[in-house]
């Protein structure tokens, strides 16, 4: 009896110890069950390893800063510029689902910034449907998200839960050697972020937004690195070729750095550090028009 009890306790202790060491992340070892079975499957070797591409993917910024800047520019919220959630059933390949999962997540960030909780649920539902379609729906607790979303005081919590869900999903995809899916999600989110910004610029001609759009030159270069890594796949190659045109349009954007004295101050026990470098952006009207045009072309390709 004692032997059995000792054995049982050992197993439970080992299990708990393992759980403690690895945190609370969701796990599944059944990779066959979660494998993508259509257009994203490929055995061709990658130029960059999963680890390197994972680092590169992290470099694509969140939509929060851009959405906040759009709001502070004074532009009115416009639902018509967002991707329509009724299209969700038309995305019937893993490639399209992953891309538009990114698109709807950027839309959700924009909606959240403008506190438009009346339409949040339909976007959450679209995200959940697409996530299920690429076998990562387990990271989105739709009922919790819906409960938080329908309480107008809880939109910050909604952002925390949804960003956290995306982070867990991204970690999971990378652990399953499915960085190609993560790549499409961040590409979709980035393109939608650029598109929303472009539309806000057209409406306001706001110089801060124009500068911010111009500064995304490096991000577009990063997207090219990511997509080129999977260009042996026809769909990736087609998307990369469209982003290459945008990269070309960005070529004449000039970004220089101005140096100043670094500053740090402590106020009420809190530390604030001011960077000693400042970027100066130069972009002509012609270049801006060309960039916006290419963003629209890519966005149409992504959401159609």
């Amino acid at each position: 009896m004692l032997k059995k009890l000792t054995y049982l306790t050992l197993i439970v202790a080992s299990t708990q110890f393992f759980t403690a060491c690895t945190g609370s992340s969701n796990k599944s070892s059944d990779s066959d069950e979660l494998a993508i079975t259509d257009s994203l499957a490929s055995d061709a070797p990658l130029e960059l390893s999963e680890e390197v591409i994972g680092d590169v993917i992290q470099n694509v910024s969140s939509p929060v800063e851009m959405a906040n800047l759009i709001k502070s520019s004074g532009v009115e919220f416009s639902q018509k510029i967002l991707n329509n959630t009724e299209k969700v059933d038309e995305y019937d390949t893993s490639f399209k689902r992953a891309l538009n999962l990114g698109v709807y997540s950027a839309d959700l960030g924009y909606i959240n910034t403008f506190d438009k909780n009346t339409i949040v649920v339909s976007y959450l539902l679209a995200i959940k449907n697409l996530a299920d379609g690429i076998k990562v729906g387990q990271f989105f607790d739709f009922n919790s998200l819906k409960r938080v979303a329908t309480n107008s005081n809880n939109l910050d919590s909604l952002m925390e839960i949804s960003v956290s869900s995306f982070n867990k999903m991204d970690s999971y995809l990378r652990s399953q050697k499915r960085s190609n899916v993560s790549s499409l999600i961040v590409t979709g989110a980035s393109i939608e972020g650029l598109y929303i910004t472009a539309k806000a610029i057209e409406a306001t001609k706001n110089q801060d937004l124009i500068d911010r759009l111009a500064e995304q030159k490096d991000i577009v270069n990063i997207l090219m690195i990511i997509l080129n890594n999977y260009s042996q796949n026809e769909s990736f190659a087609e998307l990369a070729s469209k982003i290459a045109v945008l990269e070309k349009a960005y070529e004449s954007v000039k970004i220089t750095t101005e140096f100043s004295e670094p500053k740090s101050m402590e106020k009420d026990g809190k530390l604030v550090i001011v960077q000693d470098e400042k970027s100066i952006v130069e972009i002509s009207d012609e270049t801006l028009k060309a960039i916006i045009k290419e963003i629209e072309v890519i966005r149409e390709f992504v959401v159609l």
């Binding site: 500064e215 990063i222 550090i273 970027s279």
Partner: peptide
């Protein structure tokens, strides 16, 4: 560019004013 360890003191929070977009 910045750290929560400043002049030998460790802070549980700090703010960073970024002047240059980048990685």
């Amino acid at each position: 560019e910045a750290s929560n360890m400043h002049n030998g003191k460790l802070y549980n929070e700090f703010e960073f004013i970024c002047g240059k977009t980048g990685v």
